[in-house]
């Protein structure tokens, strides 16, 4: 029983990470209509900047600020210098340009930091486990990630549904031309939204640093999953990104954790492990296929 609870927590934590990335991606796609393949690079830049600041200053606060600032500034620079020229073009041009950005960022990071992965330690205060229930201990740092992710989700919800900026964002996602016609400075709005998306990607990156390896190419590994989340949730919808991310996180973790065990009831050990691992890695893609079949626009489509 505690094992199941622990795996659910693991799924939740993974889902929250995916949400941070998917929120930015879906905002950018929903509002500007841009497919930003380089979103994973912002995640990587956030992780590298935080790792570098942590190594230089030994301060958690400065590392967090450095990670967020680097990702947000880079994201806004990307929007102003590259993507702004591509809004009117078709998706193929955007994909090509942002793919080029991935290569440029990866190579630049290699030149600056080298190929060796960086070491980031968990802040000493958060290093350790707590006993949530009798027999269920869980790393504090992962609980912090879950809490931070849920807080961001709540903050985004309030920002989008309760503020003037949020109103413009929502309007931009559904009636772009009308917003422009009403005299809103759409260029500023675009840059701000892009910066916000980049900031969230940077947050995910800097939180992932102490758990995963901070290395070149870390963004591309998670980007594919993020796209699955965006498609399942419904392109352009923050609510969709949130539930999509939690769904993908929970389904993926549960399949990996429990499927081989279940299969072992009906077949021999090594076959069950191999088949279980295979099915588990297909799981979220099958989930995506089913969702698309039933609701072609995703679970919570933005443009109703």
């Amino acid at each position: 029983m505690t094992l199941i609870l622990e795996q659910l927590l693991n799924g939740l934590q993974f889902g929250v990470m995916l949400f941070l990335l998917a929120a930015g991606l879906t905002l950018i796609f929903g509002i500007m209509g841009v497919i930003n393949l380089a979103h994973g690079s912002l995640y990587m830049v956030g992780a590298y900047a935080a790792a570098f600041a942590a190594a230089q200053t030994n301060s958690v606060l400065l590392a967090v600020l450095a990670g967020l600032a680097a990702a947000a500034l880079l994201g806004m620079a990307m929007e102003v210098f590259v993507l702004r020229r591509l809004y009117a073009r078709d998706h193929l041009d955007q994909v090509l340009a942002t793919f080029a950005l991935i290569l440029i960022f990866n190579q630049s990071v290699t030149i600056v930091f080298g190929r060796q992965p960086l070491f980031v330690s968990v802040p000493p205060a958060l290093n350790g486990s707590v006993e949530l229930l009798p027999g269920l201990t869980y790393p504090v740092y992962r609980l912090i990630i879950i809490a931070a992710g849920l807080a961001v989700a709540l903050g985004l919800y309030l920002l989008i549904n309760r503020t003037r900026i949020g109103m413009l964002v929502r309007a931009g996602a559904t009636h772009r031309e009308m917003v422009r016609a009403l005299g809103v400075d759409i260029r500023l709005l675009y840059t701000a939204v892009f910066g916000l998306g980049a900031l969230l990607a940077g947050l995910a990156g800097l939180m992932a640093g102490p758990i995963l390896a901070v290395q070149v190419g870390m963004g591309e590994q998670i980007l594919i999953m993020t796209f699955v989340v965006v498609v399942i949730g419904g392109v352009g919808s923050i609510r969709g990104a949130f539930f999509g991310a939690l769904l993908v996180g929970l389904v993926d973790t549960s399949l990996r954790a429990f499927l081989p065990g279940l299969l072992r009831q009906v077949m021999t050990g090594s076959e069950a492990d191999a088949l279980g691992a295979g099915l588990a890695s297909m799981g979220i893609y099958m989930l995506m296929a089913v969702v698309l079949l039933v609701r072609p626009k995703g679970l919570f489509p933005a443009n109703v």
Partner: peptide, 14 residues
């Protein structure tokens, strides 16, 4: 005996 995914970086479930 567990086979992980080659692109997997989070091993909490394992």
């Amino acid at each position: 005996e567990v086979y992980t995914r080659l692109d997997q970086t989070d091993f909490a479930a394992e």
